[in-house]
Design a protein around this nucleic acid. Sequence first.
DNA 1: ACGAGAACCTGTTTGC
DNA 2: TGCAAACAGGTTCTCG
Length: 258
Amino acid sequence: MRRARFDEVIVRRANLRTPFPPQFSARLAGHTVNAVSRRAKYLLLELSSGDTLVMHLGMSGDFRIEPAESVGEPGKHDHVIFRMSSGKAVVFNDVRRFGFMDLVPPGEAERHPALSVLGPEPLSTDFNAEFLARALKGRKTSLKAALLDQRVVAGLGNIYASEALHIARLSPRRRASSIATASGAPREAARHLVDAIKQVLTEAIERAAPNTANNYRGGRFRVYDREGERCRRRGCPGVIVRKTQAGRSTFYCPVCQK
DNA sequence: ACGAGAACCTGTTTGC
DNA sequence: TGCAAACAGGTTCTCG
């Protein structure tokens, strides 16, 4: 497969969460995509122009790929259409418009305000019990809210924050600082939590991978969206409850998560 | 300085 | 049935 070039970029609505940069379409047209990468929940496309296209799907965004010739009348929430030299059109659809697109000049991607504040990637060795304990030392917010803070760990979202806490048997309502000693050293809970985050994300990636036999692991989640249902931990008689923390739904088992 | 809550949007589900 | 409130997997701003 050859690297594809942007033949034409049609912006049907030039503001998602933030306004698009000036000359967005013109800066893309004629350039090829040299590399695709990811940082936290941001998608990064390195272009032959040297610019980096930074994108985020927000809550409801998605890309769909269709043959260019079959692109008909755009749907209501189709905001951007990338017509590629491959003959495909990549359509960005986003009902809630919490998505995000920006174009940053060469060498400035890491300094982008959205990216520069991010903590370590959860599956990297930089994300470990020592780091987490230091990051949460003295923080009075809840453990759950802290896990959603992208400066602490980048790319963990609401579902897997709840899931990881269940695996680690830690209550989402604990003080974040409780996983560290006063000097910022990790307690055992910090190691369990780091391990649980890595585990839950690794499993989720495996499950999502195409062409594997892992696709139909029944049951989906351990706690997320299971209010009122039995805890899945073996031997635990608990019932999953839902609580709002920092404006988001948290699901946990009050019996086995301490 | 920190943490909680609101705000940004639209669509769907839930409750009276 | 109908309408309003609550809720949705994210991020960022404001306010106390």
